[in-house]
Simulated assay, not measured.
Amino acid sequence: MTNILVTMGPAINNTEMLTKLYNDGVRILRFNFPHYDQESALKDANNIHEVEKKLGGKFDLLLDTSGPQIRTGVLTTPISYTIGEKFRIVVKENKRGDRDLFCDYPKLINDAQIDSIIKIDSGLFDVKVIEKGSESLVVEALISFTVGSRRHVNLPGIHCDLPTLTPQDFDDTLFATKNGFSHIAMSFTRSGKDIQGLRDFLKQNNGSQIKIMAKIENQEGIGNLDEIIDASDMIMVARGDLGTELPLETIPVHQMNIIKKCKEKNKPVIVATQMLETMITNPIPTRAEVSDIFYAVREGADYVMLSGETAVGKYPLQCVEVMKKVIEQAEKL
């Protein structure tokens, strides 16, 4: 049977909501560490443990690592670019002009090539590299867009010389071993060696019982899929960054293939991202969202995941109910 994995946040981090979620069959709670720190996570984890005592039940807690992130710099005022406009991306903050963007990945100039596409703000703003200098790239805006402060940068098809686990991720992993977490999700997993490195670290720090979930969300993860599945305890089809790193139209194909391989290797698999995105603000889903859940279940997903829908949405319990009903329908066939 397909189960539901929910993401913690202000919308559900209280005794009443956690009790209702447990009674609705939810058993895994995800802490998304790009949006949590250890202090706030500890507060919510302790609250969960108190709820467990009252219910006589148990939640599994999942810590989702931040992973390596590339961002633009701080802007006091957003910059609006028009389609076809050319501007610079610099890797030294003190070299940034009024209409330039700073990027905090120091090897960007070496790694990017002419005609490389750089995706800014989680893929909303695409620019093309047209010139390389010693301290900057000249890029052309492919659409008109306004860029705000500290926006995510994706470099599809470019191998970035960044560790899969950052020092902060290792520190957060230690936090997980000490505070009752049962799962860790590794963001941007690129190889089986990445998983083995985390497993060795857990063994060295009294965390060998913690299960490792590999998130497949870039081209390298797709290319090394078999060895990643073999090395992991669970797999997440993380469609957010995957859909930024790879063409959107290929994501359903990759999802089907990942689920198929996981079933062959008897590894649990989670389908995640935007499953009921519109229900963050609306009380009912779109027909497309219902179909998305339905076909994920039919393909063999062991879990379907709610992200912002339960973390910050207006209708977290309704989202769980919608998922339960769709799962029930899909499993009748």
Rank of each mutant, 00 (worst) to 15 (best):
I48A: 01
I48N: 01
I48Y: 10
E50Q: 13
E50Y: 07
V51Q: 04
V51F: 06
V51S: 05
E52P: 05
E52T: 11
E52D: 03
E52A: 10
K53N: 07
K54L: 14
L55A: 10
L55V: 13
G56P: 04
G56E: 02
G57S: 10
G57C: 05
K58M: 00
K58H: 14
K58G: 02
F59L: 07
D60L: 12
D60N: 14
L61I: 09
L61E: 02
L61P: 08
L62G: 00
L63W: 06
L63V: 11
D64C: 06
D64N: 09
T65W: 02
T65K: 11
T65Y: 00
T65V: 10
S66C: 09
G67Q: 12
G67H: 03
P68G: 06
P68S: 12
Q69S: 14
Q69V: 13
Q69E: 15
Q69F: 03
I70M: 10
I70L: 04
I70V: 15
T72C: 11
T72M: 09
G73I: 04
G73S: 06
G73N: 00
G73Y: 00
V74Q: 09
V74A: 09
L75R: 11
L75A: 03
L75Y: 07
T76D: 07
T76H: 11
T77I: 10
T77W: 01
T77A: 13
P78I: 08
P78M: 07
I79P: 01
S80I: 11
S80Y: 02
Y81P: 12
Y81Q: 03
Y81N: 12
Y81K: 08
T82R: 14
I83W: 00
I83A: 14
I83S: 12
I83R: 15
G84L: 00
E85F: 09
E85Y: 09
E85P: 04
K86T: 14
K86A: 01
K86V: 10
I89K: 11
I89N: 03
I89E: 06
V90D: 10
V91A: 05
V91R: 08
V91P: 05
V91N: 04
K92R: 15
N94F: 08
N94Y: 09
N94C: 00
R96G: 05
R96L: 10
G97W: 00
D98L: 12
D98H: 07
D100T: 06
L101S: 07
L101C: 03
F102H: 13
C103W: 02
C103S: 09
C103V: 14
D104N: 15
D104F: 13
D104A: 04
Y105T: 04
Y105L: 03
K107Q: 13
